Simulated scan of single mutants.
Amino acid sequence: MADMFLEKFQSLVPRYLEDEWQPEDGLPADILTEELDTAGVDIPLVLREFYLALGGCEDLMEAYYYFFDPDELAIEDGYLLFLEDEEEEYVWGIRADQLDVPDPMVFRRLNARGTWKSEEGTFSEYVLDMFAWVFEELEPELEN
Results as ranks from 00 to 15, higher is better:
4 M>S: 12
113 R>F: 05
36 L>P: 06
72 E>L: 04
104 P>C: 10
9 F>Y: 15
4 M>G: 12
52 L>Q: 07
117 K>M: 07
130 M>H: 10
30 D>K: 12
16 Y>R: 02
78 G>M: 05
68 F>A: 15
33 T>V: 15
121 G>A: 12
30 D>C: 06
29 A>Y: 07
105 M>L: 14
98 Q>P: 02
81 L>V: 14
96 A>Q: 13
69 D>N: 14
102 P>S: 08
37 D>H: 07
58 E>D: 14
21 W>Q: 09
127 V>W: 03
12 L>R: 01
142 L>H: 08
119 E>K: 11
10 Q>Y: 02
93 G>N: 04
85 D>W: 03
125 E>D: 03
28 P>Q: 11
117 K>L: 10
60 L>A: 01
61 M>T: 05
124 S>L: 02
12 L>I: 07
125 E>Q: 07
96 A>R: 02
143 E>L: 14
132 A>Q: 13
37 D>N: 09
55 G>Q: 03
38 T>Q: 15
51 Y>T: 00
76 E>M: 05
102 P>G: 09
26 G>W: 00
127 V>L: 06
125 E>I: 04
11 S>K: 08
79 Y>N: 06
102 P>T: 05
28 P>E: 04
64 Y>R: 09
55 G>F: 05
101 V>S: 07
22 Q>G: 13
114 G>Q: 13
20 E>P: 00
67 F>A: 12
6 L>C: 14
63 A>G: 10
112 A>V: 11
89 E>R: 13
131 F>I: 05
117 K>F: 12
105 M>Q: 10
135 F>I: 00
135 F>S: 01
86 E>A: 15
48 R>T: 14
91 V>H: 08
121 G>W: 02
37 D>A: 12
99 L>E: 07
122 T>A: 03
88 E>P: 01
18 E>K: 07
71 D>H: 09
67 F>C: 10
101 V>K: 00
